[in-house]
Amino acid sequence: MTDAAPHSIQVRISGLRKSYGEQLVLKGIDFSVERGEIFVVMGPSGSGKSVLLRHIIGLEEPDQGDILFDGRSILQSEVARQYRLAMVFQSGALLNYLTVGQNVGLYLQEHRLRKPEEIDRIVTEKLDLLGLKGVKDKLPGELSGGMNKRVAIARALVIDPQLVLYDEPTSELDPLMTITIGEEILNLKARIHVTSIVVTHDRELAFGVADRLAIMDDGQILFVGTPDEVRRSQHPFIRRFLNADFKAKAISDLS
């Protein structure tokens, strides 16, 4: 990893295809994300959003297509290693047997990048940044879902990332905590100008944080545009997805 690299990166996905056995999950994905942009990929469950993120972070290899950071293909692992990437997983993915502090400092400690006392200082700083004072010595199991998500974000920040990927960051969270997480994503952009790709089916979060949005369904990108452009889209699926609402009255009439 090079310190000389700029603090955010441009991402381009080109013709990405992936299948598991007979099932084609990504059917030729194309889009690009500019430096420092918050790009939201929105779509229903099972549309291939998380698989797309796993390709960008390097956890999966595509069958076809390419992923480029600043114009360089990252499918060669030595190129990918030159960039600092972080991912906030849907489940938080904190190591349960480590304390919050050890989880947040894990990257620095395992790569021997700082002295223990310096790691401690950085961990405290990142936890404070996310409003998590006094939880450093607790285990992840002792925290609420929202706090775990924020610890996961703190762990991502320790890497000093150029690209942060968020996989359903507000799933299982109440509306107030959803707003808090959304504000954190916006704060990070303001503070460190990091490029962010957020995968979600939460409409409030998506329109609240996105610079641009992509709507994805059945392994394909249906539309890419600013939040206003998406709202104005007449695509039938997008209209249905954005206007989906619980019709309690209709159900009570039936009963």
Binding site: R54, I57, G58, L59, R81, L85, A86, M87, F89, Q90, S91, A93, L94, L95, N96, L106, Y107, E110, H111, I159
Partner: peptide, 12 residues
Amino acid sequence: YQEVDALRTMNI
């Protein structure tokens, strides 16, 4: 629970 994936994303 994706903890192994989390390690991989941290180059661990």
